[in-house]
């Protein structure tokens, strides 16, 4: 099993790097070309979520992204924000999306989760095993060459 691990400080500029690395490893792992746009978007959303949470809570800890290509391409994005930050992840109904009382953060979080759920068939969001934090785990099929 080949694993690539990337850790980065919670700065928005690094999310682009994470997307580039995630797609490069996906291509190398054998993820179908037509899925790569969705991989790029999903990894971007998961990393954006982690970076945003770290910044909201004033955390300087690194965000970690692990990619492995055993039987499928698995990406885990791990943050260290308090677990309650993950509560309330839900897709927003259309009539609430442009509601005046919806904050920008709530909108972005809801839309981001809708994109993750929409683009990743195999998606899990769960607490990390040690300490505070959440792991977003995304799996895509690979075609062996």
């Amino acid at each position: 099993m080949a694993t690539v691990r990337l850790s980065f400080s919670p700065a928005p500029v690094h999310v682009r790097t994470a997307r580039l690395v995630g797609v490069a490893v996906a291509r190398r792992a054998g993820v179908a070309e037509e899925l790569l746009d969705e991989v790029r978007l999903a990894i971007g959303e998961a990393c954006t979520r982690a970076v945003t949470l770290h910044r909201q809570y004033g955390l300087t800890d690194l965000v970690t992204m692990e990619m492995s290509d055993s039987d499928s391409y698995t990406v885990r994005v791990i943050d260290h924000a308090p677990i309650e930050a993950s509560v309330g992840l839900a897709k927003l109904p259309p009539d609430e999306l442009a509601a005046e009382n919806l904050t920008d953060d709530a909108l972005t979080t809801g839309v981001g989760f809708a994109l993750l759920a929409g683009f990743v068939d195999d998606l899990q969001v769960r607490p990390v095993d040690d300490g505070p934090g959440t792991e977003v785990r995304m799996v895509w099929p690979v075609t062996r060459r």
């Binding site: 997307r19 790029r40 978007l41 971007g44 959303e45 954006t48 999306l97 442009a98 005046e100 920008d104 909108l107 972005t108 979080t109 839309v111 981001g112 994109l115």
Partner: peptide, 19 residues
């Protein structure tokens, strides 16, 4: 080339501002 939830949030913000 690429648009994520943050960009979508900005567009919704503009829609609300103009409304």
């Amino acid at each position: 080339d690429f648009l994520d939830s943050t960009g979508l949030g900005v567009l919704v913000g503009a829609l609300k501002r103009l409304r």
